[in-house]
């Protein structure tokens, strides 16, 4: 029997690609561009990253952003799923709202940010609203699609037991829709993150988006790169979180391969 290796070839090659990219970046930054104001070499980015955390500057901003983000996403999940099931269940109501929903889904949420500022004012809540709107529509649309996808026989089955709509929804519709909700959430997380950043670019004195504009305006390119790295990790962590949730929910599924 062959010894089982910790990392498969796919992962090894992936890491190799990452290392090659960093080396290339270092070489270009040092020997081709040779101007840290334009392109900071990766080793300098790592130092700046360390500084950001060591000096403690980042924490306050990271916390503020995460608060906006999770509040917005949380509300989007609650409202998106409930309304999605409702629209999926009552076709005619969905048809009534369908053009509106499709339009809002197609619109980059940030386009109405100035309006939101006029309506809500400055501060914490307009940013939460942007995250909410960015995340709400993908979750809603996916939930509706999930409810629609359920074999009608399962609903007949539920009705044959004489249950209320609510019982059928909680026992059959909602669990059957979970995979769709998860794909909606995957999209929502990335959309919400970009919405949050842009909102913080505009008007804010807190948050990682604000820090980015600040470092940009003050030409601290190394810190700018450090922020990009932080955002990449944030996006990755959130995606992994969604993957994890999805796996947990579908633990019953047969292993593929």
């Amino acid at each position: 029997m062959r010894k089982k290796e910790l990392f498969g070839l796919n992962i090894k090659l992936g890491i190799l690609g990452l290392i090659a990219f960093i080396i290339l970046w270092e070489v270009i930054a040092l020997f081709v561009v040779n101007n840290p104001l334009f392109l900071t070499p990766p080793h300098q980015v790592v130092i700046s990253l360390h500084q950001l955390f060591a000096q403690g500057l980042i924490y306050e901003h990271l916390l503020a952003s995460l608060e906006e983000f999770f509040l917005g996403i949380g509300l989007a999940v609650i409202f998106g799923v409930i309304l999605g099931i409702f629209f999926g269940w009552y076709k005619k109501i969905h048809w009534f709202f369908s053009p509106l929903l499709t339009s809002f889904y197609a619109m980059p949420t940030i386009a109405i940010f100035p309006l939101i500022l006029i309506w809500i004012g400055l501060g914490f809540w307009p940013k939460v609203t942007i995250v909410f709107l960015a995340a709400f529509f993908p979750i809603l649309i996916n939930t509706i699609a999930g409810v629609r996808n359920i074999d009608h026989d399962f609903i007949r089955l539920g009705k044959s037991f004489g249950g209320s709509d609510l019982k059928i929804i909680t026992n059959i519709i909602f669990p059957a829709t979970l995979p769709f909700i998860a794909s909606g959430l995957r999209m929502a997380v990335i959309r919400g993150l970009s919405g949050m950043l842009v909102a913080e670019f505009y008007v804010s004195n807190k948050g990682i988006g604000y820090l980015i504009t600040y470092f940009g305006n003050t030409f601290q390119t190394d810190k700018l790169f450090a922020m990009v790295i932080i955002i990449i990790f944030l996006g990755l962590a959130l995606t992994l979180l969604v993957n994890f949730l999805e796996k947990r929910l579908q633990a019953w599924k047969p292993e593929k391969n």
Partner: peptide, 19 residues
């Protein structure tokens, strides 16, 4: 029409739960 995410036991209790 068994619910794939439920075990045999909890598939059997579906009708009870729904009613």
């Amino acid at each position: 029409l068994l619910l794939p995410w439920r075990t045999v036991h909890s598939n059997i209790t579906l009708g009870l739960e729904i009613s």
